[in-house]
Design a protein around this nucleic acid. Structure first.
Lengths: 251, 251
DNA sequence: CGAATATTTGAACTTAATCAACCGAGGTGG
DNA sequence: CCACCTCGGTTGATTAAGTTCAAATATTCG
């Protein structure tokens, strides 16, 4: 499913940095990814970039950081799936996004993390000390510009999600969700009609503002309506893009 | 309510530009505003900035632009209140934010506007041609950096809103909303306990993912609970910050 | 004053949440 | 190896929160 991210890379040679070197060989993990921080950087400055990066691995179910932690690092995911979430005092939580290879974490930070980040699968990531990353960024407007692009894209996605959460019905939410995952799959060169769900029903619920039961029921509805099929619990086959799109309203 | 924004300013001398000149006199409309694009720019480059700005006025209920329009301009609001919204085909809509003096519109644009912008009150704004603004920005990393800050702040706000829309009850939503407005009021030097609502119940509903009836009923609840009082329909007096905060959960 | 618009309140209804039972796959230990 | 346990998922019955439809009351503005 994911590209061969176990390929021989020096432990500290993070994929972001490699890509930034402008190497003609596209980086195996972050190449052409929508959110990855890719910008050409002269070879001479690469050492500096290498020096501040570290490759980390996080087991499934472990947290990269928690809501409220001091914001010490920024990350570029190179493998696996991460979810970002905010919680209320009584435990209700909202997942604000699912991230995978090529996605960047570290925007929207003040001094402390405004959200938590949890690995849903085993995760690999490049980690940069936040402060040094920002100093570096200040010297490289290209990187800053790329980050502004990323932020703008995320903002647009957040607005779509607000429309979904505020105004869509359960089936519209789930249909929209599956279509987005399908688009993502296409963007990374996978077939459009086969959507993997690396997250549980409960996590989908926390993302869509529903309960896990409603997610399950709605999944069954979509199946009975002939829009999707479940190859297994976490592999959805989209049978009819059209009916799914009609069910979704938009996005 | 709003600061004296009718003070003598040359028609094309937009407040953003004035502030950017690093004038010791703080700009009457965008000074110290959280989202305003303020950065020191040498006097010599000011002409260029003036040249591309225009001061516009928009009547209440009129649109600055519609969802789907080609994205031609960016704006800095200098007076009045604007709402940004996205709609579904059948008319359901989600308001993604209320903006007022000092707020910037123009992030998250692709080639076309991802959302519409409507004046809720008479509005004044500085308008910049998008393309020229971006060229200018490219030459001034300071402005770009400021915009990244803005985007990050908006992203954090969007995540708060997702938590609100996905997981909070009606009274928690309304309480959170009033507290945010109160914080905004404080930020502009107004009293914390007196919150003006320049928008209708229906617009509040479209922002909070509720119907106008639920907004009205919930307002009554909060009043009966002794958390707020209604001086008139669009002026809320916060009687007990504490109970409001307790009702809100967070934010 | 009167029309138009916004708000409040009421009653019936709908959607999704809650509570609860059951199913099935995967892993553990006897 | 198999019984058992756990965890995630599905399905059912009931309930609650908020929507919808409807009517009455304020408010604004010409």
């Amino acid at each position: 499913m994911s590209p061969p991210s176990g390929s021989p890379i020096a432990t500290r040679a993070c994929t972001v940095a490699r890509h930034m070197a402008g190497s003609p060989v596209p980086c195996s993990t972050c190449a052409a990814r929508q959110f990855s921080i890719c910008a050409p950087v002269p070879e001479s400055e690469l050492t500096e970039f290498f020096a501040m990066s570290a490759r980390i691995r996080v087991e499934a179910r472990r947290h990269l950081f928690n809501e409220g932690d001091p914001a010490q690092h920024v990350f570029n995911i190179t493998a696996g799936t991460v979810c970002l979430s905010k919680a209320l005092a009584d435990g209700r939580r909202q997942i604000t996004g699912f991230l995978s290879e090529g996605d960047f974490i570290g925007l929207a930070h003040g001094d402390s993390c405004a959200y938590g980040a949890e690995a849903l699968t085993p995760v690999e990531a490049c980690r940069f000390p936040r402060e040094r990353f920002e100093q570096y960024m200040a010297k490289h407007p290209d990187v800053e510009r790329r980050l502004l692009q990323i932020a703008s894209t995320e903002l647009a996605a957040a607005q779509d999600q607000m429309l979904l959460l505020g105004r869509k019905t359960a089936s519209e939410r789930l249909a929209s969700f599956l279509l987005r995952l399908s688009d993502r799959a296409v963007a990374r060169g996978e077939p459009a009609n086969l959507v993997a769900l690396p997250m549980t029903r409960s996590e989908i619920g926390d993302y869509l503002g529903l309960t896990l039961e409603t997610v399950s029921r709605t999944m069954t509805q979509l199946r009975k309506a002939g829009a999707i099929d479940l190859d297994n619990v976490n592999m959805v086959r989209i049978v009819s893009q059209d009916s799914l799109r009609r069910l979704a309203g938009t996005v």
